[in-house]
C-alpha cells in the first residue's frame, strides 16, 4: 500500500499551498483588526487608543469619549465590517453559482431587489420598520431567482446572466424611484440609502441583520467544498453525486440572505461583491474553502478602509462610503470587461 507523502513533496506552486493561504487569511484578519482600531480612533475628534479600549470595556458612560465610541464609532465600524464581509461572500457565491465572473449583488439586481422591498416596507408598512432585514432578504432573493430563471430560459450564457441582471436591476430601480416619488414620506433618508453608507447606523439596527450575516457566512463556509464541486458545472457536479439544482438554489438563498441583510442597514453599497472576490482569488485561487474565508475578512477590511477614506478625505465634510466604492468599483468593472474581452478571464 502506498502512503500519503504530501508533506515530503516539494511545492513548486507555493501560492496554492495550504500554509500560504492560511497565512494570507490570518494576515487579512490582523489588517482588519488594525483598521478597526484606526476606525474607532479616527473621526472629527481623535480619540487615543487607550481611551477607546477603556470605552469599549466599561468606562464612565457619561464621558464624551465613551458616548462617541459606543454610540457612533463602534456601530459604524461593525456595520462596515459586516456589510463588506457579507457582500463579498455573496458576490463570491453568485460568481460561482451563476458561472459568471462579472456577477455581483449590485450588478445582477440583487441589491436593487433588496432596495425596492425596503422602500415598499417604509412606504406602505412604516409600523413594521423592524422587519427591514427580512424585507431586504426577500427582495434580494426575488431578484436573484428572477435573474436565475430568466437566464435559464434564455440559455444561461455568461452574457445572458449579466444582461438579465442589468435589465432586472434597471426595472427594480425604476419601481423604487417611482415609489419614492409617489410616496414622499419615504424620501427622508432615502438618498443616503440609495448611495449606501454607515453614518446613521445604530447597534439596535444591526442586531437582526448581523445575526443573519453571521449565520449566512457560517453556512457558506460549512458548505464551501460543495461550491467547489458546483463550479465544475452542473453536469459534472451531478455526475459526482451532488443534487446540483438543489445545491445551487441553497447557495442563491444564502447569497440573498447575506446581501439583503447588509443592504438593510448599509443601503445600496455597490461593487464590494465584485472587487473583493477577484482580489481574494488573486491570493488564494479558486478553492472556496479558503476563498470564502478570505472574502469575509477582506470584504470587511476593504469596506472599512473605504469608509475611513470617506470620513477623512474631505474632513470635516463626509462622503457616503457608496460614492468611494463606486469610484473604485466602476473602473475595476471596466477593467474586468476588457480583460474578459482579451480572453484572460477564465473563471
Amino acid at each position: 500500500m502506498r502512503t500519503w507523502r504530501a508533506s515530503s513533496t516539494r511545492m513548486p506552486f507555493p501560492k496554492e499551498s495550504r500554509r500560504f493561504r492560511l497565512l494570507v487569511i490570518a494576515g487579512t484578519g490582523v489588517l482588519l483588526l488594525v483598521l478597526a482600531a484606526v476606525s474607532l480612533c479616527s473621526g472629527s475628534a481623535s480619540i487615543p487608543l487607550d481611551e477607546v479600549v477603556r470605552a469599549l470595556f466599561g468606562g464612565d458612560q457619561t464621558e464624551k469619549f465613551y458616548q462617541i465610541v459606543q454610540f457612533v464609532r463602534l456601530p459604524r465600524t461593525l456595520a462596515a465590517i459586516l456589510a463588506g464581509g457579507a457582500l463579498a461572500v455573496a458576490g463570491t457565491i453568485l460568481q460561482a453559482v451563476l458561472g459568471n465572473a462579472l456577477a455581483s449583488p449590485n450588478i445582477i439586481g440583487v441589491n436593487a431587489g433588496a432596495g425596492l422591498f425596503t422602500i415598499l416596507l417604509a412606504a406602505f408598512f412604516p409600523q413594521l420598520i423592524w422587519f427591514t432585514p427580512l424585507a431586504a432578504f426577500l427582495g434580494a432573493l426575488a431578484a436573484a431567482l428572477l435573474v436565475y430563471f430568466l437566464a435559464q430560459k434564455t440559455g444561461a450564457s455568461r452574457m445572458t446572466i449579466l444582461l438579465s441582471g442589468i435589465a432586472v436591476s434597471s426595472f427594480l430601480g425604476a419601481v423604487t424611484d417611482g415609489v419614492i416619488t409617489l410616496v414622499p414620506d419615504t424620501q427622508a433618508g432615502r438618498f443616503a440609502f440609495l448611495i449606501g453608507g454607515f453614518s446613521g447606523v445604530s447597534m439596535d439596527s444591526l442586531k437582526l441583520a448581523s445575526l443573519c450575516i453571521l449565520i449566512g457566512i457560517g453556512a457558506a463556509l460549512l458548505f464551501s467544498y460543495d461550491l467547489n464541486v458546483l463550479t465544475l458545472g452542473e453536469e459534472t457536479a451531478s455526475t459526482l453525486g451532488m443534487r446540483a439544482g438543489l445545491t445551487r438554489m441553497v447557495f442563491l438563498i444564502l447569497a440573498a440572505l447575506l446581501a439583503g441583510s447588509a443592504i438593510s442597514f448599509a443601503g445600496l453599497l455597490g461593487f464590494v461583491g465584485l472587487i473583493v472576490p477577484h482580489a481574494a482569488r488573486f491570493f488564494v485561487g479558486q478553492d472556496h474553502r479558503y476563498l470564502l474565508a478570505l472574502c469575509a475578512l477582506l470584504g470587511g477590511a476593504f469596506t472599512l478602509l473605504c469608509d475611513l477614506l470617506a470620513r477623512v478625505l474631505f474632513a470635516p465634510f463626509e462622503l457616503p462610503v457608496g460614492i468611494v466604492l463606486s469610484f473604485l468599483g466602476a473602473p475595476f468593472f471596466l477593467y474586468l470587461l476588457f480583460k474578459r474581452k482579451r480572453g484572460r478571464l477564465h473563471d
Binding site: F13, E16, N228, T231, L232, G233, E235, T236, T239, R281, G285, Q286, D287, H346, D347
Partner: peptide
C-alpha cells in the same frame, strides 16, 4: 463516472 464534453478549468491544484 462521467467525463462530460465541456470541462471547467478552475484555478486550483
Amino acid at each position: 463516472a462521467v467525463l462530460p464534453q465541456s470541462r471547467a478549468v478552475p484555478s486550483i491544484t
